[in-house]
Simulated assay, not measured.
Amino acid sequence: MSRIGKKPISLPAGVEIKLDGQNVTVKGPRGVLNQSFPPGISIVQEEGQVLVQRASDAKQDRAYHGLSRALLANMVTGVSSGFEKKLEMVGVGYRASMQGKKLVLSIGFSHPVEIDPPEGIEFEVPAVTKITVKGIDKQLVGNTAAVIRKIREPEPYKGKGIKYENEVIRRKAGKAGGR
C-alpha cells in the first residue's frame, strides 16, 4: 500500500468536495478546482476527511494511488490557502514592476519584457528585485514561475539572472590571471 496514498486528507472549514464519478470538484474560499482521476482510483468522503482508494494491486493502480492523493491534497490546500513562489533578480539594473496586471521586467535586453498572467495567477512585486507568483493551482504557479525564470536563467560566473528565492547557484571560477 502506498504510504502517501493511504493517508486521509482532512478538509478545512469552508472547503467542499463534490464527487461525480471520476471527476472531483473542490470549492473553497479562494476558488474552485476540477480534476479528473484515472479509472482505477476511487475517492470516498467521510466525516470531514477524504480517502483515496485503489481498485486493485495492479502496477498502474499502485502508481496512480499516491499521485491521486497528492493531487487531491494540493487541490484542497490551493482552494483554502493558495500557493506562491518567490523569485529574486540578481544583476545591476535588473528590476521588475507592474503595469496593471502585467509584469514588466528590465533584465538587460534592449526592450522590457512584458508577461501577462495566465488565468488564475497573479503577480506581486514587493521590492524592485523580488517577484511573487500566487495562485490556487500548484502546478500552474510552479510552471509560471519557471517560465519567468527561463527568461534570464542565473549564470554560474557572477550569478546574474532570475532565481528562486532559496535557490543556490553553483559558482564557477573565472579565467585565471594572465601571468
Rank of each mutant, 00 (worst) to 15 (best):
Ile151Trp: 04
Arg3Leu: 02
His65Met: 03
Phe123Glu: 08
Gly31Tyr: 07
Asp116Phe: 01
Glu155Asp: 10
Gly31His: 12
Met75Asn: 09
Pro154Met: 06
Asp137Cys: 06
Thr144Asn: 05
Leu103His: 14
Val44Met: 15
Lys86Tyr: 13
Ala173Asp: 13
Tyr157Glu: 01
Asp137Met: 05
Arg179Cys: 05
Val141Tyr: 12
Asp20Gly: 12
Gly108Tyr: 11
Glu46Cys: 10
Val141Lys: 04
Lys160Gly: 06
Tyr164Pro: 07
Lys172Leu: 13
Phe109Ser: 13
Ser56Val: 00
Leu71Arg: 07
Pro118Ser: 08
Val147Leu: 03
Gly14Arg: 05
Ser80Val: 02
Val113His: 03
Asn34Ser: 08
Val32His: 07
Gly161Thr: 01
Arg171Gly: 03
Arg171Leu: 14
Lys102Asp: 04
Glu153His: 10
Met1Arg: 14
Gln99Arg: 01
Ser110Leu: 07
Val50Asp: 09
Ala96Cys: 07
Ala55Glu: 14
Gly82Lys: 01
Pro38Arg: 06
Glu46Gln: 01
Tyr164Phe: 10
Ala146Lys: 07
Glu16Gln: 10
Val24Ala: 03
Ile162Trp: 01
Asn34Gln: 03
Ser36His: 14
His111Asn: 10
Lys172Trp: 12
Phe37Pro: 05
Arg171Thr: 15
Val26Pro: 12
Lys138Ala: 14
Glu84Pro: 07
Glu47Asp: 06
Val50Cys: 04
Glu119Ser: 11
Thr132Glu: 13
Leu71Trp: 08
Leu71Lys: 08
Glu84Met: 02
Val104Gln: 07
Ala127Ile: 08
Gly28Trp: 00
Arg171Ser: 01
Gln99Asn: 06
Ile169Cys: 11
Ile148Pro: 10
Gly177Ser: 13
Gly5Arg: 04
Ala58Gln: 01
Val168Leu: 11
Lys138Phe: 11
Asn34Asp: 14
Lys130Ser: 10
Ala127Lys: 02
Lys18Gln: 11
Arg149Gly: 05
Ala127Asp: 03
Arg62Tyr: 05
Gln139Ser: 15
Arg149Asp: 15
Ile115Leu: 02
Asp116Arg: 00
Glu122Phe: 09
Lys27Ala: 13
Thr77Gly: 13
Lys175Asn: 01
Arg149Phe: 12
Ser42Phe: 05
Gln45Val: 11
Lys130Ile: 07
Leu87Glu: 13
Gln45His: 00
Arg3Glu: 00
Val92Ile: 05
Gln139Met: 11
Gln45Ser: 05
Lys18Cys: 09
Pro118Thr: 07
Gln99Ala: 00
Val168Asn: 03
Gly108Lys: 06
Tyr64His: 03
Lys6Pro: 07
Pro38Glu: 04
Glu46Ser: 00
Arg95Tyr: 08
Met1Ala: 08
Val52Asn: 04
Pro154Ala: 08
Ser97Cys: 13
Lys163Ile: 03
Leu11Pro: 13
Lys59Phe: 06
Asp20Leu: 11
Asn23Glu: 03
Glu167Phe: 04
Arg62Glu: 15
Val44Thr: 02
Thr129Glu: 06
Pro39Arg: 02
Ile107Met: 01
Ile169Leu: 14
Lys101Thr: 00
Ala146Ser: 08
Leu67Lys: 02
Lys102Arg: 11
Lys86Asn: 01
Pro117Tyr: 03
Ser110Met: 13
Ile4Glu: 04
Pro126Lys: 06
Thr144Val: 09
Pro112Tyr: 12
Thr144Asp: 14
Lys6Arg: 03
Glu88Arg: 14
Gln45Met: 13
Val44His: 15
Leu105Phe: 15
Gly159Thr: 01
Tyr94Val: 10
Gly93Pro: 01
Gly178Ser: 11
Pro118Phe: 00
Asp57Ala: 00
Gly135Glu: 03
Ile9Cys: 09
